[in-house]
């Protein structure tokens, strides 16, 4: 047992609590009756996820997760919620339909599938395939702004420009949809 504990690294110690917190936050999004609480829960989820990203070596993406997701996008959501000013009457009662039930069951089933596939539930066919991928040693500065930016502007410039164009279109589209008569 002590050897097991000795084999644990800082990443282990941080990952599992953060994973649990993330899952809790995510459940909060889905279960909260009021979208406002859901949105707050989502922000916390994004923070925990950002920490996990950083644990996985994605420093730059983790920061972006906080700035863009938890910052910009979630603010957008909160603004929308504020504009809509939803009350209990507007939200209505929960309705359970057959499709919701079956779809929900299948969604939960996805976790089972993932478990079986990832070999945590050892069956006859348990394909422990991924574990055979040896971890590559991370180079110096992996996931840093410099490294990702270099790749982004050197090799993926076209995609970057396409996405920037998409954002522009989205801005115009959002204004058009929200303002114009449909």
């Amino acid at each position: 047992m002590s050897s097991f504990l000795a084999s644990l690294t800082l990443e282990h110690w941080l990952f599992y609590p953060l994973a649990l917190l993330t899952i809790a936050g995510a459940l909060g999004v889905v279960l909260a009756r009021n979208p406002l609480y859901g949105a707050l829960s989502l922000i916390s989820t994004f923070f925990f996820l950002a920490a996990i990203f950083i644990l996985a070596g994605a420093h730059f993406v983790g920061i972006l997760q906080i700035i863009v997701y938890a910052g910009a996008i979630m603010v957008l959501f909160l603004m929308a919620i504020m504009l809509l000013a939803l009350d209990a009457k507007a939200l209505g009662r929960r309705r359970v339909t057959l499709f919701k039930l079956v779809g929900g069951l299948f969604s939960v089933g996805l976790v089972g599938l993932a478990l079986s596939f990832l070999g945590l539930r050892q069956g006859a066919r348990g394909p422990i395939m991924w574990i055979r991928i040896p971890y590559q040693k991370l180079p110096e500065g992996f996931g840093s702004v410099a490294a990702v930016g270099d790749l982004l502007f050197r090799e993926h410039l076209l995609q970057l420009e396409a996405v920037s164009l998409l954002l522009l279109v989205a801005i115009v589209g959002a204004v058009a949809v929200a303002k114009g008569k449909i």
Partner: peptide, 10 residues
């Protein structure tokens, strides 16, 4: 560190 499967499971 943490194995890939656990990231994927999350």
């Amino acid at each position: 560190g943490v194995i890939l499967e656990h990231y994927l499971l999350l």
